[in-house]
Amino acid sequence: MSSVSCIELIAFLDAYVDDELDSETRGDFDRHLLVCPSCRAYLATYKETIDLARGAAEREEDLAHDAPPELIEAVLTSKSRRPKS
């Protein structure tokens, strides 16, 4: 029987993912995950969420790599208006 409930596991899931739990608590979490398919699914999708957020941003960056010419122009103009330090 697991000594950890779903609510406890999910409340501290970030600490579990970031490996911040002491070994005894981590063991309790592992035992709960072994017998609870719902928490196993929650853990997997929680990790996948982090990967998706990061991956989608990287893809966005790949697609929009060049700054608009008017922005480049504005930056260069604003610099030329300032006295050299």
């Binding site: 779903c6 719902s38 699914a41 996948e48 998706l52 893809r59």
Partner: peptide, 24 residues
């Protein structure tokens, strides 16, 4: 203390999902 609605795994990995611009 159990989840109100059981969680289920997603059908594809993040890597597979990110292959499609629409998903991103």
């Amino acid at each position: 203390g159990h989840q109100d609605h059981s969680s289920v795994s997603w059908s594809e990995s993040a890597e597979e999902i990110l292959q499609r611009e629409q998903s991103c």
